[in-house]
Amino acid sequence: MEHGAFGDQSKATFSLTEEDHTLANAVRFTLNQDPRVTLSGYSIPHPSDARVNIRVQTTGDPASEVLKDACQDLMLMCRHVRSTFDKAVDDFKASNGVQAMKIDSKE
């Protein structure tokens, strides 16, 4: 990963290789939610180059810290999505199991 910050730590462009809209768009969302961010955006310089540039400008905090927090937020959200989803699937299977049993017993 390259780092486009010289002198002023609060503005930087991060160049992530092997990433695309999948991560960049989701991270841009969490970045935008952060009150410390004044500007964030991303671009893909060339479609056949697996690389995405993420621009972060903050009110003063180091941009890399803010990006890190944004990724952390996204990760925690994912974790919550996963546990909620697993629980929903388990509940669904359990309740359908009960239904199947009822059908068997011709209730």
């Binding site: 990963m1 991060f14 992530l16 990433e19 999948t22 991560l23 989701a26 991270v27 890399s64 990006l67 890190k68 990724c71 952390q72 996204l74 990760m75 994912c78 974790r79 999505v81 996963r82 989803f85 697993d86 699937v89």
Partner: peptide, 24 residues
């Protein structure tokens, strides 16, 4: 399909983790 979705979410988590470790 339910395993596919949990795996997909896990991959997004891994992507975040990768960025975090590279920034630290």
């Amino acid at each position: 399909p339910e395993v596919l979705f949990t795996e997909a979410v896990r991959i997004l988590e891994d992507k975040c983790e990768r960025v975090i470790t590279e920034l630290s």
